[in-house]
Write a protein that binds this DNA or RNA. Structure first.
Length: 426
RNA sequence: GGUGAGGUGGCUGAGUGGUCGAAAGCAGCGCUUUGCUAAAGCGCCGUACCUGUCAAAGGGUACCGAGGGUUCGAAUCCCUCCCUCACCGCCA
């Protein structure tokens, strides 16, 4: 949520930054300003009347104490009371309207973000490693996985419909090994605290991390829209400290969580849907940070490199892309996507999206910290996958496939997986 | 699911219709005294919003779990809901 005071004081600046997203959101600014002016007018008048009522009520109390008549004053206050009822309703409505509108205005992209309409304008900021030189026929993860029975998409569909994965045998074990490997890496070497959160989250939390109200059709809801299946651990973990005031000495907070993620993927039918690349349920390791305004961009760099480390240790080629203004997510000011190379797709697959939301989410969830001067400030929140599993799984088996159809796993997984290769159905 | 107890400021905890945004204590901050430490004394010390201003000071309103109601006036009375704790039942 943008700060209404910023909108009030620098409307041109806000409009200009929003316009770089190319979504026409800047048109909402005039409406917000108009509602804000109305709201404040009713509020000021309301408060004037309340002050008057308080004053007269005290007089009535004083008169009664002295056993003097107070009928006239009481009639006066009764009349003010009626006006207050009316104005309270009007002020309340204006506030509600303003809040709802503010919830639908996206964050301002960072001042230095590359300007552009869509993903074509994203900028590759670095890449690591090289595309693997594979001997013989290059198979994609579906062929490899089917052959070695690492997952079973047809039976998953029998259970849950299309867009679900059922890992089996060595595939299930590899999934588990990767989870354990990543959790150990982030907790032991990168200093994150492990959280195992609930997967069902309340509506307020979904609003807090910006999945709602705009993207409700992409979410799985239960209990009449009061609970949702979390589409990412970002939701439960970032909201962990919602409505709190943290001590500055406790910042940054760094959390890592392993959870399944549930997404309807409405409207993305046919896009990148082959195999296990885009599904309704997938596992993910998520990194979340809560920090100060001063340090959030530094923390974004380190968070991104913490996620990259997973690919480096697994020896997978990837690149890091900075998203342009037209491609950054609704709540984000700045985002790096980490894209792993998939030999099977002959394409880079997004396995992590590392974002700094600045105070956009914190304002929605009223998450603050007390700064060095004892003043309460909205925290800055960040998150990124570290990493998303099915795509990592796909890139891994494709990159390490052998001419005979087996998979030679990177050494670092040995203690987690228990053997160096997958060469037969288990 | 049932029964009972309870939700007041960073914490503990008073307050049962009027001058209560709320006693007191603890913690925190500042000052004084003091050889150091300690202790004592004095003062300050919630949040949001509106207004005001270059900025402030200042003024005002709201908030005692949430939402309604009664009343001239509600932390206080009434209703509904939520949450926490304890015990019972059921259950992975």
């Amino acid at each position: 949520m943008l700060d209404i005071r910023l909108i009030r004081e620098k409307p041109d600046f806000v409009r200009e930054r929003l316009a770089t997203r190319g979504g026409g959101e800047e048109a909402k600014i005039d409406i917000v300003l108009q509602i804000d002016a109305e709201r404040r007018k009713s509020e000021t008048e309301l408060q004037r009347l309340q002050a008057e009522r308080n004053r007269l009520s005290k007089e009535i109390g004083a008169k009664r104490a002295k056993k003097e008549p107070s009928d006239e004053l009481e009639a006066q206050v009764r009349k003010i009371g009626e006006e207050i009822v009316d104005l309270t309703k009007r002020a309340g409505e204006a506030e509600e309207k303003q809040k709802n509108l503010l919830l639908e205005i996206p964050n301002l992209p960072h001042a230095k973000a590359p300007i552009g309409k869509n993903a074509d304008a994203n900028v590759v900021v670095r890449s690591w490693g090289e595309k693997p030189k594979l001997a013989g026929e290059v198979r994609d993860h579906v062929a490899l996985g089917t052959n070695l029975k690492l997952f079973d998409l047809e039976r998953a569909a029998k259970i849950s419909g299309s867009g679900f994965i059922c890992f089996t045998g060595a595939g299930a074990k590899l999934e588990r090994a990767l989870i354990q490997f990543m959790l150990d890496l982030h907790t032991r070497e990168h200093g994150y605290r492990e959280i195992s959160p609930p997967f069902l989250v309340r509506r307020e939390c979904m609003i807090g991390t910006t999945q709602l109200p705009k993207f409700e059709e992409d979410m799985y809801g239960l209990e009449n829209g009061e609970l949702f299946l979390a589409p990412t651990a970002e939701v439960p973990v970032t909201n962990f400290h919602r409505e709190e005031i943290l001590a500055i000495v406790d910042l940054p907070k760094k959390f890592v969580a392993y959870t399944p993620c549930f997404r309807r993927e409405a409207g993305s039918a046919g896009r990148e849907t082959r195999g296990i690349i885009r599904v309704h349920q997938f596992d993910k390791i998520e990194l979340v940070k809560i920090t100060t305004a001063e340090s959030s961009y530094e923390e974004l760099e380190s968070l991104t490199s913490n996620a990259e480390r997973v690919l480096q240790l697994l020896g997978l080629h990837y690149r890091v892309v900075e998203l342009c203004t037209g491609d950054v997510g609704f709540g984000s000011a700045k985002t790096y996507d980490i894209e792993v190379w998939s030999p099977g797709q002959k394409a880079y697959l997004e396995v992590s999206s590392c974002s700094n939301f600045e105070d956009f989410q914190a304002r929605r969830m009223n998450l603050r910290y007390k700064d060095a001067d004892g003043k309460n400030k909205f925290a800055h929140t960040l998150n990124g996958s570290g990493l998303a599993l099915p795509r990592l799984f796909a890139a891994l088996i494709e990159s390490y496939q052998q001419p005979d159809g087996s998979i030679a796993l990177p050494e670092i997984l040995l203690p987690y997986f228990g053997s160096a290769k997958i060469d037969k159905v288990d």
